[in-house]
Design a protein around this nucleic acid. Structure first.
Lengths: 134, 134
DNA sequence: CCGTATCCGCCTTGATACTG
DNA sequence: CAGTATCAAGGCGGATACGG
């Protein structure tokens, strides 16, 4: 931690910053994939599990519960045997769609720039390492 | 993992989904706070450390390096003694500002809804627990 | 079919100390 | 001032097994 002196006035805080609150909601890698799976309509539990590469039941359930708790996703149970469960976005969840898609658009437009920057950065790093070992 | 049968066609993947790539860039809690600290202009290393509540030097450096590697932030070193280092957004970083702020706006507008949904969800949970223990 | 419970390894993070 | 090095602790996520 930084506490170089007592007259310390942090004005940027995890608890208040809008960006942080945003991440608090869509933070995890699985959250956005589940969100993505639901953006064109409702889907069943097993269906999502099969569509999302690499997800476990544990993580799928946990992610859905969190989204449900935050009011972004709703769960609809049909109590047949075996049971059938469908998930869909709530109106609140749908209202998040537009800003999320704007950000996705940025990624589509600029991801290659990011990759290029990474290549360049890593390139400089290895040439530096090389220079050190002479 | 889900692999209920072999004819399994996951079409949503961490590596390709735009949302995931987005998170890959702004994933961590510190990333967005550093980004926030820079959105109104450049800032010095120590200054950011003091402004961002709870961040350690290690995390600040690590976050800045990652943002630099991704081409969103640039580092300017003035080699005096002691040295002075300023960080600022690159044009690429600035282009991310608009979509990020849209999402922040959603959070400002709807965070209370999310909190309310959480309260309601937790409320139902405890009444269920109560019912079970009768 | 739709989950929960448990265990366990790894990776991230934070604390601390040191350096040019 | 602006970092780097090291180490320990804890949480997250994966694997696995079981239940309604």
């Amino acid at each position: 931690m930084f506490f170089t002196d007592k007259r310390n006035h942090p004005d940027i805080s995890l608890k208040v910053c809008g960006y942080s609150r945003m991440l608090e909601i869509i933070s995890s890698k699985w959250t956005v994939l589940v969100f993505y799976a639901l953006e064109n309509g409702s889907a069943r539990y097993g269906e999502m599990g099969r569509r999302i590469e690499g997800i476990s039941k544990k993580m799928l359930t946990q992610t859905l519960r969190q989204l449900e708790r935050d009011g972004l996703v709703m769960r609809h149970l049909t109590p047949t045997i075996p049971p059938r469960v469908d998930y869909s976005l709530t109106p609140l969840g749908e209202s998040l769609l537009k800003p999320m898609q704007e950000l996705k658009k940025w990624t589509v437009d600029h991801y290659s720039d990011v990759e290029q920057a990474r290549d360049h950065y890593d390139q400089s790093a290895v040439s530096q390492d090389f220079a050190e070992n002479e």
